[in-house]
Design a binder for these strands. Sequence first.
RNA 1: GGACGAUUAGCGCAGUCGGUUAGCGCGUCUGCCUUACAAGCAGAAGGUCAUUGGUUCAAGUCCAAUAUCGUCCACCA
Length: 915
Amino acid sequence: MSDDQPTDLPKHYSAADAEAKWYARWEAAGCFNSDVDKNRLPYTIVIPPPNVTGKLHMGHALNNTLQDILIRVERMRGKNALWQPGTDHAGIATQNVVERQLRQDGFHREDIGREKFIEKVWQWKEQYGSTIISQLKKLGSSCDWRRERFTMDDGLARAVRVAFVRLYRDGLIYRGRKLINWCPKDRTALADDEVDKIEEAGHLWYLRYPVKNPKRADRQYLVVATTRPETMLGDAAVAVNPADERYQDLIGQTVVLPLTGREIPVIGDAFVEMKFGSGCVKITPAHDLADYECGLRHQLEQIVVIGEDGLMTDKAGKFRGLDRFRCREKIVAELDEKHLLDKTEDLTHSVGHCYRCGTAIEPYLSEQWFVSMKPLAEKAIAASQAGEVKFYPARWEKVYLNWLTEVRDWCISRQIWWGHRLPVWYCEKCGETHVAETAPAECAKCGAAALRQETDVLDTWFSSALWPFSTLGWPDDTEDLRYYYPTDALVTDRGIIYFWVARMVMLGLQFMKEVPFKSVYIHGSILDENGAKMSKSKGNGIDPLVMIDGGTQTRFGKEVTFPAYGADVVRYTLCALTTEGQDIKLQPTKFDHARNFVNKVWNVSRFVMLSLADKTLTTAPVEVSQCGFADRWILSRLQAVVEQANAAFDRLAFSEFSTTLYDFIWRDFCDWYVEMVKPAFREATPESTNSARVLLYTLDRILRLLHPITPFFTEEVWSRLRELAPSRGLTDSLPAGEFLMKEKWTQPVAEWRDEELEISITEVQDLVRAVRNIRAKYRAPDDKPVELHISAAEGNAKFVDRMANFLAIIRARANVGEIFVGVDLLKPKVAATEVLAGAQIFVPLAGLLDVETERKRAEKELEKKKKSLYSLNQKLHNFEFLTNAPPAIVATEKERAADLEQQVKNLQAWRDGLQ
RNA sequence: GGACGAUUAGCGCAGUCGGUUAGCGCGUCUGCCUUACAAGCAGAAGGUCAUUGGUUCAAGUCCAAUAUCGUCCACCA
C-alpha cells in the first residue's frame, strides 16, 4: 500500500507535518474567524495580550491551551466563538530590550533622542514582535487573527486618549506631588503593585542623636533605629509614641542631627511601635512612605537627599554625588568613628524591587499623574458582589475584593519613552494645563500658541485595562462591541488579578457600564519538579517549544535532549494537570503519559481503518436494539461519558474533562470493545456489519470529543477516515465535513443508555479478570484454553441467566474452552478458585495447582472480606445507624452484608477443601 | 502581623452532596514481541488519607487547634 492509502497509517503519529499542514488549512479556510451574526449566540474570550518582547513559556502554553479548549468546544457547540488576539506594548520591558540592543552598539537612548528611539522600538517590534504570535499558532490557538490588535496601534491609542480625557473631566485623574515608588535604574515612577517585596537580610542600625540642652543628665542623646542610615541626612524629626513613658519628656525637645548639625524636633505620633527598635523613629518625609504621612500630619519639611539617579543630592552636603548604598557605608563608618553608632543588629526585612529590572526601589517625591481609585473600586466591588463577575475558583474573589477595598490611588505616569504619551499640554506662557484628545492649537486661557506636550507616558496597564472593549472598536459604538461585549470568560494567572483583572472591571464599568467578562478563571502556576517557580536565572524552565518540536535545552546547568512530543501532547498534558486552580509541578517525563495516549488513539484509529477497509459500509439506519451486546454496551458507555465530559467541561474541570475521555477511550473502547468485536471482524460474521458501523460511529465521536484538547492529530485522523468512510451516523447518515474542527459537538442520546447491560458487562469483566488472575498465578500456558466453572450463589439463578448471554465473550477474553455455569455447582477436585460478588469460579488446573499457593490466596482474601464484613456488621447492629441513616443506604448495606457473608462462606469452604 | 492554598501508595496527583472494598499515571514485580499499538497486552504488590481533638449513625471529605511547605497582602522604621 502506498502512503496515500487511508488505511495505511504509520505506526506512530508524527506531529510536525500534521501540525503545520492543518494549521495552515484551518486558517486559509477561515475556521478561526468570527463575524457578527445576530442569529447566533456569541462566545467571546479576549486573550491576555502577551508582551511583544515575550517568548512562549509554559505559563503561556497553559493559559492559551485552556482558552483554546474553551473556544473550540463552544465553537463546536454552535456558538459564534471569537477569540480576540493581540499583544501588549509592555512599556518598560520593551524599552529595556531595545536599550540593551542600543548599548551593544555603544549608544544610550539619550544619544539618539526620543523620536529616533521610538522609531527604533517600532522597528524592533516589526522585526521580533511577532515571535510570540507565531508561537501561539504552533500551539494550535484558534484566534481570529484578522482581528489582531496591539496596545499601541492607532485605534487603541485613540481609545487610550479618550479614556484619559474622560477620566480627567470626571475628576478621576489628577496631577500631584506625592511620594511614589521610583526605580533609579529605569528612572521612572512605578505603581504600588509593580513593586516586588523581597525578604532580605539587612541590618538595623541604632544611631545616637544628641539632645540639645538636655533636661536630664541621662539624656545626652536619644537612640533611633533604622535600616537606612543614609536617609538620616533628610530627617525632619524624631518621633516617639506619646503613650511611651520612656520618652514622654522628650516630646517638644530638639535634637541635633549628626554629621549635619541641623536641629530637628522630637514629636509624638501614635504610629510609632513602642516595641520595635528603640522606640524612637527618625522621620524622613521624602524617603519613606510612613514618614511621608507622618510628615504631612506634623507639617514637616520634605528634604530630598537621594535623586532620581539613586545618587545623593546637593542637600546631602558632603555626601553629594555618592551612590545611595555607598553613602550608607560611609555614614555608618563616620557615625561609628564619632561614637554615635550605638549598636548594629541583623534584621530580615522586605525591600521593594522593580518588577522589571530588580533594582531596589526608592520612595521618591515627585510630580506624577494619578487615577483616583476609590469611586472606580466601589463599582467594581459592587459588580462582583452582585454576581456579575464570577471567579473560578471562587476564593479569588476575596483576593480581588481585598485589593479593591484597600486600593490607593494609581500612579499612571511613567518617565520612560515607550508608551502612550499623556494627552496633556502645558502653556509655555501662562502654564495652563490642557487635557484633550488632540493637541490644542492655542492656549484656551491666554491664547499663546506655544504649547508643550507632557513628556510622561502612561503605565502599560492603563491601555491593558481597556483591552476587552478597545479591541472591539471602542470608543466608537461598533457592531462588534454591541455583539461581543461583555465577553464570556477571562482566563488568567493569579499574578495579574490586581494589575489587570480588577482594572479591566473598573474601567469596563466606567466606560461600558457593564462588566467586561462574566467569569474569570484563575488557573494555577507552572512550577518545576521541586515546586519552585520556573525562571531563567534558576535554569529550571521547560520550554514548551522544545517539548513540541524536540531538541536540546539546558536544565539545571545540563544540556538535555528531548523528543518532539508535538503540540497535542503538550496541550493534553497541561489540560490533564489542571485541577481547580492548583499549581502544576511539571517535569519533562510528564509528557510521556499524553504521548502514549495520543499514540493509543492513533493506533486504534489504524485498527478501525484496517477493519473497515475490506468491508462495504452500509448506510442504512442501524437499529441499535438489534445490535450485539458489545455494540450496545459501548454505545451506552459513550452516552454516559459524553454526559460526564460535558458536565466536567461546564464546571471548568479541565483535568476531569480529559481523564473522563482518556478512561473511556483506553479502558472501555480499546481494551474491551475493540477486543470484543475483533473475532467477529476476523470471521466476518453477520454481526460484524453492525459492529463496523458502531466502531466507526464511536471513533467518530471520540475524535470530536478529543478535538478541543488535541486538535491536530484528531484532524489528521478525521481526514483519513473521511476518505474511507465519507458518511457517518447510526440512525441517520450524514456526510463527514471537511474539517473536524467545524463539526458539531456531541450530545448524549438517552435511549442508548442501558445501565443494566453496563452492570452485566462489569460482572463479565470481573469474571474474566478472575480467570486471568488464576491463569497468571499458575502460569497456565497461553496457547491452552482452560476449563471454567461458574457457580452462582444459591438462589441466584438470575446471575446464571445473565451470564449465559456472555459466554462467548468470556470464552474469548479469558482464553477459556469449556464453560459450565449453574447454581451452586460442585467444585471440581483439583481447581483454583476465585470468589466474586454473586458467584464463585473454579478453574481445574491439574498438574499446575499448588496447595500452598492456593491456601495463601484463600487466606488473604478471607482476611480482607472478614474485616469488611465485621465493620459492616458493627454498623448494621448499631441502632442509631438503622434509625438515622437514610433507608436506601441501610438497604444497600444490608445487601452488601449478605453478599459478603456468602463470599466468606465460599472462601472458608475453599480453604477447608484444600489438601 | 493578616489572608489563602497544600499535606492521600516510592514519586506526581484525582477524590463532587459526608455513605460500597480510597482511585489514576509513573515507577516496581511476574508473564507475554497475541496481525492497531512494546509509546503495547495481561496479572500483581504497594495506603493508619500530616498530627490531635470535635461534630455525626457514618469523616480522606465538615469544624477547631498544631506541625511542615508554599503563595499573596501589610507604613515594625
